[in-house]
Amino acid sequence: MDLSSINPILLLASLMVAATPILLAAIGELVVERAGVLNLGVEGMMITGAVCGFIIAVATGSPWLGFVGAAIGGAMLSLLFGVLTQFLLSNQVATGLALTLFGLGLSALMGQNYLGIRAPAFPDIHVPLLGDIPVIGPIVFQHDPMVYVGLFIVAAVWWFLNRTRAGLVLRAVGENHDAAHALGYHVRQTRLLAIMFGGACAGLGGAYLSLVRVPQWTEGMTAGAGWIALAIVVFASWRPGRLLLGAYIFGGVTVLQLNLQAAGLAVPVEYLSMSPYLATIAVLVIMSAGRAPGSLGRIFHAAR
């Protein structure tokens, strides 16, 4: 084993890239759950976003348009979930699971002609001045733009939830939908918008895999990232700051174990592969002190 082959600066730099897809999907799901809806279809929305983004990026040659298409694709799929659960009052758990299966199948169908193609390049940006700082520059300021978009979304969600009236209403709807309804807030509309935001974020996360990380289309390429995003939301106690920490721990341990595998550590590969999941859940469980939104997963019926 040769640990000297691991470059700590490259390791830390790739951490942010590895964490971004999960971070994007998780921050969307966090908003959905704060509004009181449990959408287990994150995996399905992610992979639909991955294939939509890939198709549009290949067709137009623009990764940016690809990301826009991915967000729209994810949001459309989540809209299906929203109509089923909010208007037809279907069970959220069952509908979410079905959405995952549906998304996996739909994406495989849509992506049939796109196997083995490379995505258009999405160059890293080199932040002026900051990117030139030794050590910190390469780690933090020399990534592709979506890394920063992801961080911006997390910060914006925090600000929205804690500093705006619309965010307060969204939390109120998630905390006690009957009381929110009694005060005259529109529970369904609020939830539908939250669900679509969650779908769009999951779509972005999926497209980040197919356009940046891999970057090509393969069936089932999300490989459980949607599920870990769901877990991170819960273990982060539905708080954006902790969610960022959880995503980075997951990303960090992922790249570390890949590096260790490459360095030939004398531990079975299976243990290394499971380590990101164990580490993330262990850390967040230890920190966890939060409480789920009061109406999470409950069906809202306005007639009462």
């Binding site: 939390r171 109120a172 905390e175 006690n176 009381a179 929110a180 005060l183 939104p293 009061g294």
Partner: peptide
């Protein structure tokens, strides 16, 4: 003022 309070516990 509602019979079953229209309050949000976590806030």
């Amino acid at each position: 003022v509602f019979q079953h309070f229209s309050l949000f516990d976590a806030m």
